[in-house]
Write a protein that binds this DNA or RNA. Structure first.
Lengths: 223, 223
DNA sequence: AGTCAAAATTGATTTTTCTCAATGCGCCTT
DNA sequence: AAGGCGCATTGAGAAAAATCAATTTTGACT
């Protein structure tokens, strides 16, 4: 466990021996890692738990830009910009490694491998954002939610019952819907026995049915 | 003109002298630079014109993921992945510089400056994608369109009448709306004399009114 | 100028989604 | 156990947006 690769194929010890300040951090559900506009001193790797990246519109409405899972990086926009552009909030109790951005900058200039790894992650983030754009731009509510649930599963392989720390408002803020609408669709999925939910845990009973909804054409004759 | 900085602060000649193969490319409206799944051999910098990056859903529905303007880069996902994940299509007659990806890879390993510049651009793309997510996730059709038009202006400073090579279906595919709905809103904007349109050109008559619709309550700047 | 096809507009209608309001449930505290 | 609080659910009505079906406009090509 201790010797797990943290970042760019380097273990925690290797990073430390290269002069990198790495802090183990653990945080509670709801804890704020940083806020919009905070000076970006640190970047993080998420070792366990889940984190949401949130931005607010002028009118105060919150949008979840990205959801992070074990192994994901956050706060790396600080390598280019002085301030964070999202808020990062733990959805569940989480463990992270905190890296000093200035040192990371230095390290990345010396080690091409690190550069490469960062670019790789940036690429992943962009990919996932673009996928999200497609969801929001082209799919209806049911399909968005179905896709989302199926993707959530993939982050918890070989688990029957998945940790599911998202509230209805969280889901709504991520999928671009109202809380009520999300609630209705989830109730629908339960009624059809596609899913089952209890105390922050989710079970996908009929993945193929969800997959059907996820790819469904907007025009579909009612039966 | 010839000595303009192409990329990472390097002029075309400098890049060539470093052994980089740089091709000037010009293409017509509607021309396809690459398709989804094409082997990624080249990346491009857009020198003039406009390009759309398009992805299709299983059902064939097309979504415009990003719009590119003078100075933007495209095709750089090929540095990490073997195939392009979008189609790139010229919206207007455009001029580009085509860079060989393998050589770019080599160059970026030698020159940290290039690395840095690429990361910067990646960051910009991510930023713009995230902004787009906010638009799609949180705003109504009118507001999206208003925001979009105001952003379009910014790419053509000090021009009264802006090139506007987007069809209604293009706008719809970018803003996540139906063609008809876009058409209605545009008609509305014209009726209110917020904008004026003729033959692929657009004039913003009342930016502050559009800004109002876009959802910007507190601050407005005199221009 | 005249014809044609593509693109845009408009209208009527339906579907989807939101909003507002009420209610219910689970969990925590006392 | 009772009360209270936050979150989730449900319902009804309103609003937003999509869909379907004509037209109308535009632009390109004779």
């Amino acid at each position: 466990m201790r010797n797990q690769s943290i970042f760019a194929g380097l273990s925690l010890e290797e990073l430390r021996s290269l002069g990198m300040e790495v802090q183990d951090i653990s945080c509670l559900q709801g804890e704020v890692l940083y806020r919009v506009g905070d000076d970006a001193r640190y970047a993080y790797t998420l070792r366990s738990g889940a984190v949401k990246l949130v931005k607010s519109l002028e009118n105060g409405q919150e949008v979840i830009i990205r959801l992070l899972h074990r192994g994901d990086l956050l706060g790396f926009e600080g390598m280019q910009e002085a301030q964070h552009r999202h808020a990062a909030i733990a959805l569940a109790p989480s463990e992270l490694c905190r890296l000093d951005l200035a040192e990371l900058q230095r390290l990345s200039e010396r080690l091409p491998k690190v550069q490469e790894a960062i670019r790789q992650r940036w690429q992943q983030a962009l990919q996932s954002s673009e996928d999200h754009i497609m969801e929001l731009g082209a799919k209806r509510a049911e399909a968005r939610l179905a896709t989302f649930l199926l993707q959530w599963v993939e982050h918890y392989p070989q688990l029957r019952s998945l940790p599911f720390p998202l509230s209805r408002p969280d889901l709504a803020a991520f999928l671009g819907l109202s809380t009520e609408h999300v609630s209705r669709i989830m109730a629908d999925f339960k009624r059809h026995a596609f899913i089952q939910e209890q105390r922050g845990h989710l079970e996908i009973l009929a993945p193929q049915s969800l997959a059907g909804m996820a790819g469904k054409l907007p025009e579909h004759k009612p039966d």
